[in-house]
Design a protein around this nucleic acid. Structure first.
Lengths: 209, 209
DNA sequence: AGACTTATGTGAACACTGTAAACAAGTGTG
DNA sequence: CACACTTGTTTACAGTGTTCACATAAGTCT
């Protein structure tokens, strides 16, 4: 689909094609692998054509980053969808928060290139609320986490006065573990050690929030 | 000191000069700013001269990364040196652990370029024990953290059975917060919000370990 | 319908980058 | 002193992001 040389002079949907090709590259080799010329090559177009849709290589990479965040959101959603039914609302809320962490870590492990791309460069708090980085539910990773924490408060598990700033704590912990496992000093851990670390970390967050 | 064109054909200590110039670049612009040609330029030498001391650009960057880790270690050491005296050993041990986190976060905030460089690419667990990435005390950041946790156990604050793997938890949390504040979604927080987040995070780690 | 404007592509060119191969200048060792 | 070895230089090449001029398709207005 990338290589059939189009008959029309216009591409039709080049911007999307560029982001898609960039995402493929990011998946294979991380953010440094998304190189403008190769992206345009895969889209079957001249390098400069990209400049009609993106100001910069930076802007292109940013768009790819948002797409990666959206995939991360879908990974979280998948984990949340697999939660077994519980009796009390508190357990459900707890499971939903755990699912956020688990989906986050699973995505980082499973798609390290995309994961690193999702958090490259200048992703602002605005990006954490933009539709472009949202998953199937329409929520971004950050919003999914917020919702899970809100649920914890509503079900009475988390005292309301401990709610403000809780995103930062939970997010920091999980994000840090993911980063250290991907290209940090914890990279050489096997999957069993990782599962152990993940379990203890999520436990710590629940206990320490 | 970098620009006086040497009279001798040999440089004398080129390897160190390259790492030093690379560190300067990393400090100003992060890992992507350490470009081989510019490094050699600053050392007053031809680009290819670098290949007599480093296999790759990657190898050069790795050396710079180790130097950055050493600076991080010194930042932690500085924070630990400023701990006021306490009566009981438990409070001291707790303060030492807090100092690790505080020094970590202060370094990330104060030297974001170097911080990102310290954790770029392929830093293995072996690097966390190599002398090249150690601070004044001869300990690497990872070892400083381990020592602080050991102190927590020795003074009876942390039960021994909770000790294994505790590095990962503490490190992940603090590292994650640092990353999110540097070029993540928490970048737009002001210093007051950061201090608040740091305080709550360290509190969570202590409580949840 | 035909002319004008605008959006979207191509082509050639430039200043960079990392890296390889051959050569040159010092340094050390028998 | 001759010879090998280390360390720096020269030249060269492929690949990158980006700019400027040009070409072509698609709308738009009368």
């Amino acid at each position: 689909m990338a290589h059939r040389k189009r008959s029309t002079y216009r591409h039709g949907d080049l911007r999307r094609a560029l982001v898609s090709a960039g995402t493929d590259l990011a998946r294979e080799g991380g953010p440094s692998a998304v190189v403008l010329r190769e992206v345009t090559r895969r889209a079957g177009v001249t390098p400069n054509a990209a400049y009609r849709h993106f100001e910069d290589k930076k802007a292109l990479l940013h768009a790819v980053s948002l797409a990666a965040q959206a995939e991360l959101a879908r990974s979280i959603e998948a984990e949340q969808a697999a939660i077994p039914p519980h009796d009390d609302a508190g357990s459900v809320a707890r499971a939903r928060l755990r699912a956020v962490g688990a989906g986050y870590l699973r995505f980082a492990q499973t798609q390290p290139g995309l994961f690193r791309t999702a958090f490259v460069g200048h992703t602002d708090l605005r990006d954490a609320a933009t539709a472009e980085s949202a998953g199937q539910s329409g929520l971004t990773p950050f919003q999914l986490l917020s919702a899970a924490l809100d649920g914890l408060v509503e079900s009475g598990v988390l005292p309301a006065e401990r709610r403000p700033g809780a995103e930062f704590l939970a997010w920091s912990s999980v994000h840090g573990l993911a980063m250290l496992e991907i290209d940090g000093p914890l990279r050489s851990l096997d999957s069993q050690q990782r599962a152990f670390a993940a379990g203890r970390l999520l436990e710590m967050v629940e206990k320490g929030l």
